[in-house]
């Protein structure tokens, strides 16, 4: 056997195999790693926009002002001004988009007022509270107190 006849076929095959494996790794990475993955760091850059584009449910009191300006001004003048409209009336973005058909809920129940104003030893001492068991039980609060102007007594 002369030296010229030495076969390199097995080495070529090995090189092809290695090249194929590396190439498939690169292709698989391209397929499986999302396009924006390293955009800002070790996460999908698109996910920020997805989080930012979720629907808003609470519109905020300034949205109520456009239509209910009279009520808005009364509310701003009195002690409940730190309580935004939707804390009591429920989320209202749908109502602001479609004011005629979708109406916000009306809180009227006594228990709702007592969430804040029920007597509780853990509350700060300066906060105005009543004992729900003694203070006219069974009567709805709004029959005596105007919720938008809590100091005014209703008839």
């Amino acid at each position: 056997m002369s030296k010229n006849k030495t076969s390199y076929g097995h080495i070529k095959r090995l090189i092809f195999l290695a090249a194929f494996l590396i190439l498939s790794l690169v292709v698989l990475r391209m397929v499986f790693i999302p396009k924006t993955f390293w955009e800002f760091g070790f996460y999908r850059g698109d996910s920020i926009a997805e989080n930012a584009n979720k629907p808003i449910i609470f519109a905020g009191s300034s949205a109520c002002k456009d239509c209910h300006e009279e009520k808005y001004k009364i509310w701003l003048d009195f002690r409940h001004k730190t309580v935004i409209c939707e804390t009591c009336h429920g989320p209202a973005i749908k109502h602001s988009e479609n004011p005629m058909e979708i109406k916000p809920t009306k809180p009227g129940k006594r228990e709702f007022c007592l969430y804040c104003h029920g007597k509780n030893i853990s509350k700060p001492k300066s906060f105005p509270v009543v004992d729900g068991n003694i203070h006219n039980p069974g009567i709805n609060c709004f029959e005596c107190h105007n919720p938008h102007n809590p100091k005014q007594r209703q008839k």
Binding site: I56, I57, F58, E86, T87, G90, P91, Y115, C116, N120, S122, K123, P124, F127
Partner: peptide
């Protein structure tokens, strides 16, 4: 005052 309006609002939002 522990009224829980934040918890309720968070769940709705």
């Amino acid at each position: 005052i522990g009224c829980g309006r934040c918890v309720s609002a968070c769940k709705k939002e």
